[in-house]
Design a protein around this nucleic acid. Sequence first.
DNA 1: CTGAAAGCGCTTACAG
DNA 2: CTGAAAGCGCTTACAG
Lengths: 356, 356
Amino acid sequence: MKDIAAKLDVSVNTVHKAVAGKPGVSEALRAKIIETAETMGYHRNESASNLRRKDLRIAVCLPSATKEGVYFYSYLWKGCTRYAHEQRDHGLSFEMLPYELGRYTDVLDELLARLEAGEHLDGMIAYNPISDEECAALTRIVEHGVKVQLIDGDKPQTGRFGAAIANYGAAGNLMAEQAVNLLGGRAAAGNILLLSGDAYTDSHYQVARAFHAYIAEHAPALKVEDLPGAHADVDRLRAELGHRLAVDERPDLVCSVFAVGSETVADAVVEHDLVGKIRAIGNDVFPESAEALRRGIFTNVVYKDPVGIAYRASKRLGDNLLWGIVPEDDVCRGPVELVFASNLDQYCKMAGIVSV
Amino acid sequence: MKDIAAKLDVSVNTVHKAVAGKPGVSEALRAKIIETAETMGYHRNESASNLRRKDLRIAVCLPSATKEGVYFYSYLWKGCTRYAHEQRDHGLSFEMLPYELGRYTDVLDELLARLEAGEHLDGMIAYNPISDEECAALTRIVEHGVKVQLIDGDKPQTGRFGAAIANYGAAGNLMAEQAVNLLGGRAAAGNILLLSGDAYTDSHYQVARAFHAYIAEHAPALKVEDLPGAHADVDRLRAELGHRLAVDERPDLVCSVFAVGSETVADAVVEHDLVGKIRAIGNDVFPESAEALRRGIFTNVVYKDPVGIAYRASKRLGDNLLWGIVPEDDVCRGPVELVFASNLDQYCKMAGIVSV
DNA sequence: CTGAAAGCGCTTACAG
DNA sequence: CTGAAAGCGCTTACAG
């Protein structure tokens, strides 16, 4: 920077304003400085930049990890806190705002009140808003100049900066692809029972839809029957599943598109003494599903990397606020993988699951 | 730091020496300072620390990516350069020293000469040495106080700081587990042809051994026949494989423990018009294997994350040199995953493979 | 719009 | 063994 300043006979301060995109330089001079900087191979020293500048403030607003879906939410928190920890000396300060399910709007309104009272916030990691109230509150936060990065869903109409979502379509395809493998390849025949969850829950619906589409295209001789139902009526689901497994014409393969359904499947398979006799694929890695895979109850479990999704969401926001980096796509889809007993341990280690 | 100094009535300089582990403080005072620092919740500001201190020097010595195994080596380079790029302002400077295969000792000797001439080097990322000469040269580098992190193998007798290796055992198990799945589960029967590579190449041998062990334990009715041979005699391998696929009693499944073998399998399956009629699992993601998976020639490909291995090797060394972090294990084993057509794209993106 | 000066929190080189 | 001073490369707050 000193060299550039000397070469153009301006002050380092002016160089700073030019390269950092700050106001206070004429556009002509800025262009000349940026050009010179590039030809001289200049790049900003991150350590020095971070040292003097004031921390940018980011709020994280996700469901607390104490209720339904506890594992999933705790993985999201883990991804955010990991990034926050890595960046603690790098110019970012995080405020964690967990909310009890059903109280999202309240927490958003509180935050809004603080913004209206003049408090400054640069960015926010926020759980995908569902209700109109939640969307409206988030939209108003965006209007206060806060860059909002959504997690586990997208609502472009809020004016959010970006969104990070698991690749539910790929998860459904992956589960279906292995289902076809297990039932004999392209010429596969047989019956699949799919615990398809709640059709109004985006993640359930998308996995189930992709599953059906894959089977229809690649192995049309396979019959897929849906068994819907989610957290709310898990008892009915359990009874119905038991019913299907008890009869002689039981399905050749049982799959679940969601975590609670996977647990139900594992329990039912054990209860009806079908371990090794019926094949099953679960969704999401959590202690119970990991145990079921280890014991051979599941052939596989679909992994959607919730920690990674939250980490990437945080990093995209941080990189943008700190360095002005604009991602290619505003929506970022995480990877999906199929877990086997042979490589289960590496996923448990990532998720912090200790085997029993 | 200023607060600690004020509290204990010493200089910031003394506090620095105490917390940074530098000489020049009495042990009694050091202990008192460290205790006070902890109770006051002090932690070192990384940006400030990086800004003033001199860059630590790290050399990277790996096979150049222009010969045999080009993809694998280029992935290792990619992992190292990614870390180097991330750390460019964070107190680490890297020197890249690619060598032509067979010329490893020469490059190590050159480096040794520089060290003996008084040049200083803090750390080194080095490819696993094979020959006695290579091991000896590396040992002498270690004796000059250089912390050496090995990649793709381990030679503890060199006194290396650590090693990062793909989990070849898990890769063999994973391939075998899916082989059992494809051939009918626990009661599977059938014949598997295994391109087992070169028994003297550690990576080939370990994958093949784990594969055999898994089958013997989990599906003893499956017959596994080895077809050995590696890069050196790929023409013979190709002929022999063609022979086995041409006859009526062809295997139900063909697997390869190594990349060149996988390419050979894919070619042979196409040549004998067996796409969709015979099942095949390959090893390693590279353009040809990705294409074979996309076209349904392979059911799956085993992924061993070479970029990640090199990245983690670099990061472990960097974290130790910069912050004194000592990893729990000196040997770090990378993850292994089974790739499907449904999630192939995410691996191609990581490896920089553009689909045709 | 432009610049001179102070300072972020640490590390270094040097003096006592 | 201990400390006073300078300085890493940038950013900020302020003066012109």
